[in-house]
Design a protein around this nucleic acid. Sequence first.
DNA 1: AACCTCACCAACCGCCTACAG
DNA 2: ACTGTAGGCGGTTGGTGAGGT
Length: 232
Amino acid sequence: MVRAPCCEKLGLKKGPWTPEEDQTLIDYIHRHGHGNWRQLPKQAGLLRCGKSCRLRWVNYLKPDIKRGNFTKEEEDIIIMLHQTLGNKWSVIAARLPGRTDNEIKNIWHTHLKKKIKQNQASSGTKQCCAKLESQHFESQPMSSPQHSSNTDTSVVTGENRDFPQADENLWSEALPMENFSLSSEDFTATGIESADPRLQFPFSPLSNAYESMDFWYNLIMETGEFPEIPDF
DNA sequence: AACCTCACCAACCGCCTACAG
DNA sequence: ACTGTAGGCGGTTGGTGAGGT
């Protein structure tokens, strides 16, 4: 099969987007939706290829994009998911509303990979969880956070959550990757599986990131292990 | 002050998949 | 069933700024 060229190279602009281009794209999408991406730049009067427009919109201009630093919880989720899913950035991004696959990919390559390397030589998960429990969990029992929408920005910022406050280095110390996996027997032995329907299929496309964050947090607290994440 | 190195991240590229015709 | 197109994904690149020498 002969591939169609992604875009007509001649006459189309490349490189960083200007604020004017951004505004043009935003205005057009607000009025008409994006429709056909390849037609969009022509119709909107942009000298960009459709792919570039889509990328700019998806990764930067979409109103629900969350900017700013990743929270500890977000980083932990990325690390745990990556351990099982590998470089499935879009799947990982789907668990973190407001975060894009590109952003997650970047944070992985620039921060998390290093963090894991650094922590491979440090103490194991059980030690960490014991530390967490002894220092925080018993004195600050966690209540079930109320949530209803994955568009709530507190989902990813951690605002208004009842997580016990961990030490600055606690979670980063908790991440020697070889200690993450929980055998299926161990998982079953926790008894959690039958207690909550969410837990039987924690990463189904139907469960949102907020639920998943709660799920993982609770599971780690209950088992003292980072569990193996099942495929779906 | 000038230069160098490194980290960060937006954007591009090429490939794959889904789907319409 | 086959072909072509569009959308989406992951890998990679290159511009920029911060920090160090």
